[in-house]
Simulated scan of single mutants.
Amino acid sequence: METILQINNLTKKFGNLTAVNDLSFTIKKGNVYGILGPNGSGKSTTLGITLNVVNKTSGDFKWFDGSVSTHEALKKVGAIIERPNFYPYMSAYKNLKLVCKIKGIDYSKIDEKLEVVGLLERKHSKFKTYSLGMKQRLAIASALLNDPEILILDEPTNGLDPQGIHQIRAIIRHIASQGTTILLASHLLDEVEKVCSHVVVLRKGEKLYSGRVDEMISSNGFFELKCDDEEKLLQYLEQHTSIEKTIKKEGLITAFLNAPLSASAFNKELVEKGIYISHLVMRKESLEEQFLQLTDNK
């Protein structure tokens, strides 16, 4: 699979603050990547470096296998890393016409991209009449005008209402289904879980995880248990070969699995050992639980 972007040991320091620390990951063609982390984790700085708007301290990055210069590569990149900035008294169509003129793009692309983001019927409305969600969708249309190989979005749903968030996510999924690679930065676990195929988890500029979203949440799951004889249950769990670890909190025992084990088979085992459970629920770990485990251990 073709490499779109490769980041190698990237570091960025602002005085004594290390915003990005020895970061490495690879973006392959045709996937939706999420850079996930809380505010201040280095997401926007990383994107800024790859787009040549922030200078790196050390390390390097290569666009498209390093076969072209960054300047040439960026002609094949669409990016929104700041709030949409259009002329308020001009229509959406005229604003995009101006973008086409600056970038040397044929005007015929305008209607095509406005249709992708659901704004074709409002193309003659002034930008100032648009809602925040519509402004964000127009920015995506603008970033798509050059038919980029990769679309980069920094917190694309920030500040939007639920309907606006739903529309942006649907547009991202549609764009990805057409074969465009997408890289988005987000602090929203829900966003990454619903939209992305791959995730890079950052905390204080350091990579905690990089890989497929489904692999990150493909653990064997865990049991939530309640029992009158907690000591007997805990002793049994500690020596069980399929239980990786147990946590006791507020009368609930959580047993994390390191191998497949059905709830019915597990309950049968416990009864045979004279351990009677008043509550047994099997769950899969969500991305949120995985994320919290990653960040708690650092």
Rank of each mutant, 00 (worst) to 15 (best):
S286R: 10
G164M: 03
L188G: 07
H174T: 09
E2Q: 15
S264Q: 13
E285D: 13
S210E: 01
L96T: 14
K128Q: 12
L294P: 12
R122T: 12
P162R: 02
G48Q: 00
F14N: 10
T45W: 00
N52M: 01
S69E: 05
A79C: 14
L138N: 05
V271A: 10
V271I: 02
E231F: 05
A255G: 07
E269V: 06
I110E: 11
A79I: 01
G66K: 07
K226Y: 08
S197M: 09
N297I: 11
D22I: 10
G179F: 00
G59W: 02
S69Q: 07
Q293N: 12
S41H: 02
L5T: 06
V68Q: 07
L114C: 15
S197H: 05
A73M: 05
H166F: 04
E115A: 12
E155V: 12
S91F: 15
Q290K: 15
V213K: 01
K194M: 06
L270C: 11
S91P: 14
Q293A: 09
D161W: 01
E215I: 05
G274L: 08
L237G: 06
G104D: 07
G221E: 05
E193K: 15
L233Q: 01
K248P: 10
S108E: 10
Y236R: 07
S58M: 07
S44A: 00
I105M: 04
I105L: 05
H124D: 14
I80A: 10
E149T: 00
S186W: 03
S286Q: 11
I253K: 03
